[in-house]
Design a protein around this nucleic acid. Structure first.
Lengths: 191, 191
DNA sequence: GTCTACCAACCAACTGGTCAGTTGATTTCT
DNA sequence: AGAAATCAACTGACCAGTTGGTTGGTAGAC
């Protein structure tokens, strides 16, 4: 058993990601994380401060990975929605993480990285609309909001639907991309 | 101070609704609920069994109120979406409750009431499509999933958007209804 | 090469406080 | 008198965070 601070840090972060994704901040147990990571609880406090800061580290790591992998393309929003869908299909825990964050984090503390990315995206959408590349029926923030919701709609459904939800991932993906395409189809001004 | 079992039950349920909506099952504190309800913790156990069953009572009461108030109309989905939007604008805690339920409840235990309502709605949509009242581009379950997501999209956004989200409730509502209308506009079969 | 002093990595065991749930007695109404 | 409603005080388990000490790698003296 070699000693390796970097490896231990990583193992803690992985174990914490799993625990927080499953149970949230209030439900997570520091003891369990340490046990799962195969190290002593004290290491966790040495490396990450406390439970809350550990959640921060987990959440920031997820956001970085998400932004890197999904990217953004104001000119092709349907395929952006498809990539969002793909990401959360492959990392269902990350969507839970994002939801816990929204529910359990006090209103004050926002993530700089996300704020900056959002501003960028809103600006890019505005430009694309000014250039006529995408229709301007919805404002940039409306578009982002709707697309995000649609892309994750299957994962955020109440569990009671259960068997009615199609098991075929490709089929569910097509639904998402299709719906976003419809949002972007210009309609006549008349009621 | 009169004694009144019914009133005490109700006060506990109200206090519990607030506490669970704010903090979820793991984060809620039984002591706080009793204090807020202005009664002893033992009453809570006498009337509702334990913490989990108390959450069940809270959640069931919310579902009943929701189903009653929102209703469903397969022939006019945009206005259904508008009513869903309205409901959660007026009871933001209830959307949080639904989210906690999805995150914290073990997969096994579903609510009969919701299962039955879902089945009804799927059947109603199927009929409406067969009658040609609404387009059949999306299947019933796809429609329900998309509409639910769109109606709650503003409330489920990451908090980092903050000031970019329009404060005007009527405006946000129009976005929702508009988006659902677009889903229902038939398109040509060609790619 | 190997000895040694040093420090980072690591941990078992503890602490103080908090939590869900219980008990046995008291009050109030009929 | 008796039943239902109420509660102060208790219990045992658990939990986040700490402490004081041990272990293992390694840099430099010789």
């Amino acid at each position: 058993m070699q000693r390796d601070a970097g490896r231990t840090r990583k193992r803690i972060l992985e174990a914490a990601t799993e625990e927080f994704a499953a149970l949230g901040i209030a439900g997570a147990r520091v003891n369990r994380i340490a046990e799962e990571a195969g190290c002593n609880k004290a290491m966790l406090y040495a490396y990450y401060g406390n439970k809350d800061q550990l959640f921060d580290a987990v959440f920031t790591a997820y956001v970085d990975a998400y932004l890197e992998e999904v990217g953004f393309d104001a000119d092709d929003l349907p395929s952006y929605a498809g990539r969002v869908f793909d990401y959360f299909e492959e990392h269902p825990g990350h969507l839970r993480l994002a939801t816990w964050y929204r529910l359990e984090r006090p209103q004050g503390a926002r993530l700089e990285a996300v704020l900056a990315v959002n501003a960028d995206r809103l600006a890019a959408l505005e430009r694309a609309q000014a250039d006529g590349v995408i229709p301007a029926d919805f404002s940039p923030v409306e578009l982002l909001s709707l697309i995000q919701s649609i892309a994750t709609s299957w994962s955020t459904m109440n569990p009671e639907y259960g068997s009615a939800v199609p098991a075929d991932r490709a089929h569910r993906r097509r639904t998402v991309v299709d719906a976003v395409e419809r949002l972007l189809t210009s309609r006549d001004a008349g009621a």
